[in-house]
């Protein structure tokens, strides 16, 4: 009884929305109209699928690499903050300040200094991704059950062993929920960096279709980007469940 309505109602709503969109889009037929009917988008998708695939691949690999570097740096930093409170506190503050700079503002100088190649995009993606991971992980490590700390003390476990066997597994769920924010952030970061100038990518496609008043393509690229973002969230959601299967059942209990 409980499981059925959950996916059905949003799906129905979604279908209704699509139908309404199609009808309104067909009614407003002026060239360059803001609202493009879904059928036109599907058409564009069919015509330009190869370019879309190619550019999505470019943006995804930039975002993927950036995500990797960004979260790796964040994980290392979170452990340093945890291990060395005083040094860590300073580094943590610095990380907060860096994140306060808007991505757009940092993308321009980074592109200027790193060039139009992949490096500048990866750098911006990494800068977008590190922060959610750092904040979530630091918070999770800080609020761990103090009784577990007592257990590790009684068992005379050193810092590293305690981290690996007791604390790291406990923060895996928090890590994966931070990935669900950091993944899309890296993807959007890569697109923004492409706006500053690049040889390819969904960001370039967006800019070009905008300057050419190619509204159907603009919408199609937007939709592809949104869909990919959703897939990234879904991917980390599934991975998180696989990595910490014990977590959900314990949440249901409390």
């Amino acid at each position: 009884m409980r499981a059925l309505p959950r996916p059905v109602i949003p799906a129905l709503f979604f279908v209704l929305l699509l139908v309404a969109w199609q009808l309104v889009g067909q009614a407003v037929t002026a060239p360059g109209a803001v609202l493009i009917p879904p059928s036109t988008i599907v058409e564009t998708l069919g015509q330009r699928w190869y370019a879309l695939l190619l550019n999505a691949g470019i943006t995804l690999s930039e975002a993927g690499l950036g995500f990797l570097y960004g979260s790796l740096a964040a994980i290392i930093l979170a452990v340093v903050v945890d291990r060395f409170r005083i040094v860590g506190e300073g580094l943590y503050r610095l990380a907060l300040v860096i994140y306060a700079i808007p991505v757009i503002a940092i993308a321009a100088p980074l592109t200027a200094s790193l060039g139009l190649g992949m490096e500048s995009k990866v750098a911006v993606a990494a800068l977008s991704a590190y922060f959610p991971v750092l904040v979530n992980l630091t918070g999770a490590l800080r609020t761990l059950d103090p009784r577990v700390q007592e257990l590790s003390r009684v068992l005379a476990m050193g810092y590293t062993r305690t981290l690996l066997t007791m604390r790291a597994p406990a923060v895996v769920p928090a890590l994966f929920s931070s990935f669900k924010i950091a993944g899309p952030a890296a993807f959007i970061g890569a697109i923004i960096a492409e706006w500053m100038g690049a040889e390819g990518g969904l960001g370039v496609m967006l800019i070009q279709s905008m300057f050419n008043f190619n509204v159907p393509l603009l919408w199609t690229v937007l939709l592809v980007a949104t869909g990919l973002n959703g897939l990234i969230v879904l991917l980390f959601d599934v991975l998180g469940r696989l990595a910490a299967p014990w977590h959900d059942s314990s949440k249901e209990q409390s």
């Binding site: 059950d145 577990v148 066997t165 910490a244």
Partner: peptide
């Protein structure tokens, strides 16, 4: 640190994973 202790806490404190 010589590992001489066994301790049963007031709560079980088991690792859930």
């Amino acid at each position: 640190t010589s590992g001489l202790f066994g301790f049963v806490f007031q709560d079980p404190v088991l690792l859930p994973w």
